[in-house]
Nucleic acid binder design. Sequence first.
DNA 1: GAGTGATCATAA
DNA 2: TTATGATCACTC
Length: 231
Amino acid sequence: MKIFNMPKAEPKSIQELMQRAEALAGLTLGEVAEVAGVRVPVNFKREKGWTGQLIELCLGASAGSKTQQDFAKLGVELKTIPIDNIGKPLETTYVCYAPLTDIAGIEWQTSSVKNKIQQVLWMPIDGRREIAPKDRCIATPLLWSPSTAQENQLRTDWEELMEMIALGQIESITARHGQYLQLRPKAANGNVLTEAIGNSGQVIHTRPRGFYLRKEFTGKILSTFFNHGEL
DNA sequence: GAGTGATCATAA
DNA sequence: TTATGATCACTC
């Protein structure tokens, strides 16, 4: 007796995707992993992206690293998000790599950030560290698209950060910049370098960066959804 | 305790 | 090497 079915192909509609996602709600990662036939890590010190990959597998997303959305055909990006006992995010949310060169002419409307957050299927999952991964429960999924106000907030931060990058100020950007969208290192380790623009317009080498959504931003998305727009 | 900067596994 | 999936863990 299976508690849910492993998909054999990508969902053909958003309705089908949501049905698959909702079928996982209430289950633990251990239960889901058993059906999927994968082992559950004792902790995430090594396999940090394990949860996301498991959910991708169970929703029928094609694996692999693509610049596109997880369900490009449906225009939906999948994100698992660790929450505490009252539904607040425990971690920031990675969005995408930040372009550090050839950025002349890049605009918000065609940016990777805008493309990724256009429509997101959030899968909140209990992420409290005192609970073993196999016992962590999947909460109710929600399909979200940014409101005009939310998009403007992110656009403002994105434009500020991109301008600094364009002006060769990448080395002076810290995670404190940006109200809702921040820029942080994103690499295997601190030795990884990539090209960027220096303060005199020359090519320099710096750690790769990624855009992340602050917990305050994602927290509002979740609370708005679960409180029917209030609070 | 929160948040920033660092890190881990895997794919193509 | 760059990108995906993220969480860890040290510092304040």
